[in-house]
Amino acid sequence: MQDDILVVDHVTNYYADNKLGIFSKPGRKQVLNDVSFAIHKDEFFGLVGESGCGKSTLAQAILGLIPFEGSIKIDGMEYAGTDRKMISSRIQAVFQDPMSSLDPRRTIGATMREPLIAHGIGSKQEQERSVREMLERVGLDAAYSDRYPRELSGGQRQRVCIGAALMLEPKLIVADEAVSALDVSVAAQILNLFRTIDAKSEFAMLFISHNLGIEYYLCDRIAVMYSGNIVEIGTADDIYKHPAHPYTKLLLSAIPDMEKHEENGSANEQATVGHDAGSRPNDVRKGPAPAGACCYYARCQKACDRCLRRQELARTVDRDNDEHFVSCCLQASLESV
């Protein structure tokens, strides 16, 4: 489609998973399983899931850092057969830990000027001026350009990383757990910064997080990922207020509720099964799902024989709503429950 900045089409990725023993056959572990979605222009797209579900692998595939099967188109261009510079001017990343993203021996100004040098944009004076402008845009003083990362606080470093990502005016920013390493009060500042910068310039964002609350706050649409599959995509309101997939419901019920103080263990029944002997703790997988089954088969409490087939991400919950997709065959019956 014309107004999609990123199109991820049937992307699959494996890690080599060698068993112990030198004569064993090399195995492979599927990390991404036929992932497809699109991000529209100027949209904040959230990706949420537990650790190990493949969120960061997907981000690396989109950034062209790892090989994958399938196709990823950024602004209509694929990594294969396109000049890397063309793509990197359109897509930039912000990672979790700003200290490990910044070179400790370079000044902030030098780090932020680097993309401009690499792409040969402007003279030295122009580059330095745009660095100063960018520092002010991300809420820092222009004088920070001569400082080193160690002289800044965590929140300021993350502002520098965001500024560096914006230097080339990309059309897509991939933010992988960009506020997870920050203190609560500083994370709020960074979330506000994302919102104000977005109002001034046009870019789309893939915002990856394990925190559904932050995703809901910031994003227009959210995709929920489980074990390498996208199990539900919808607008933030769809996901948060009308979740359709049992995994999304579990995630939502597990968010600590500020108003609900747990008295005698009554609240959060679904998410907190586990300490009573006899009941199945649901962080214990029933073992791997049979080949070809729904990815959530092993953990789903409602799983039945129909779930032994892989579920397509196709069914809409609400027939009038063409933004909300879920990959669960029981979803129709769950809805009536």
Partner: peptide
């Protein structure tokens, strides 16, 4: 007050989070 207010919550979608300016002193 600042800590409680800066948590992203459902009601705050679409508006700025009231955050605490500055940073924790080292």
């Amino acid at each position: 007050k600042g800590l409680i207010n800066s948590l992203p919550s459902m009601e705050r979608k679409g508006s700025d989070l009231p955050c605490i300016p500055g940073h924790v002193p080292s």
